[in-house]
Amino acid sequence: MNIFRLAGDMTHLISVLVLLLKIYATKSCSGISLKTQELYAIVFVTRYLDLFTDFISLYNTVMKLVFIGSSLAIVWCMRYHRVVRRSYDRELDTFRYWILLGVSFILALVLHEKFTLQEVFWAFSIYLEAVAILPQLVLLQRSGNVDNLAGQYVFFLGAYRAFYILNWIYRYLTEQRFTRWISCVSGLVQTALYADFFYYYFISWKNNAKLQLPA
């Protein structure tokens, strides 16, 4: 464990807690893409298949349970909570995410570390995570100015993967046999997708204006 990875995991945790706070405190999920949340639930379930077979550390197991639990709780809230579900922007959140699922799965069948069920699903979850934010970014652009909690959620989510890239560089430099090409390339793609959002987020923060994304 290095400081970059810890910072990444904490930032990721914050992004999920910010989202849960927004939904719980305001009883509203306006501006949040249910499709992105469902993709993230799939990412965590397919990545942590080793939850019960491999014990790495208490930290690792607890964080896996928190991520799976919180992502499923958010999806449940947005779908079935009688108050929250009314504020879901159903007509704006129309990204055809089956494409993302299909492409990620086909890519995982072709590119993986070992051709085992667990490894193929692990690679699938890595590729899917890289593109899971797309429905949310599209929703932010369609709903124009974002309310700040939705913007913060995306900001922390982007920052977490950027920290992980530093972690991979650090591990590559300090550990001889560390080669995680699937994670590194996918993580770079993921962070690049956030780049334009970061730019507009920074501009709005600098001008102390509401975040306006170009439609």
Binding site: D50, S57, N60, K64, Q118
Partner: peptide
């Protein structure tokens, strides 16, 4: 305890 499949990251 390093995990069997080597994925020690979240």
């Amino acid at each position: 305890l390093s995990s069997i499949n080597g994925h020690d990251e979240l």
